[in-house]
């Protein structure tokens, strides 16, 4: 047997090695399977150690984002007055009237001279009286 004939006996040798690896008994194969699963389980455990916090963080971020978004699209609440009696005296439902008043330029001038009209009204009443 010389160096040139290596390929022939090497082929036979590797074939024999392949067969010895292929024909392992069931108990040995079972041990190998358990060893492989244990190694993979170790990887799963290590992965869970960071995936669980990451998942929780994602869920919290989602809830927070929904909360912020929901709050942003809601109508702003009207301010409440601390005194119930005072609150009762103010009619907040007249917002439409206020808007109409502000929108009309003539009305603004009228309301700016309310004091004058009030004095004029007083004068008329005295004159009538």
């Amino acid at each position: 047997m010389n160096n040139e004939n290596d390929s022939a006996w090497l082929t036979q040798a590797t074939t024999a090695l392949d067969e010895s690896a292929r024909d392992l008994d069931a108990a040995t194969l079972s041990r190998l399977n358990r060893a492989r699963q244990a190694a993979l389980q170790q990887k799963r455990s290590r992965r869970l150690s960071w995936m669980l916090p990451a998942g929780l963080a994602s869920a919290c971020a989602m809830v927070l984002a929904i909360g912020v978004w929901h709050g942003a699209v809601r109508e702003p609440e009207l301010p409440t007055l601390p005194n119930a009696e005072l609150a009762h005296s103010v009619n907040w439902s007249n917002g439409a009237d206020d808007l109409e008043m502000v929108a009309n330029e003539d009305n603004i001038e009228l309301y700016q001279d309310l004091d004058f009209y009030a004095w004029l009204d007083t004068q008329n009443q005295e004159h009538d009286g």
Binding site: L40, R44, A54, S58, A61, M62, A65, V68
Partner: peptide
């Protein structure tokens, strides 16, 4: 923020798929 959170969730799902394929 909502879109960011949704993207983050889908990234996590994709990551889980990749991890399963790797395993």
């Amino acid at each position: 923020q909502l879109l960011t959170a949704i993207n983050e969730q889908s990234w996590t799902a994709r990551r889980v798929d990749t991890v399963k394929a790797d395993e």
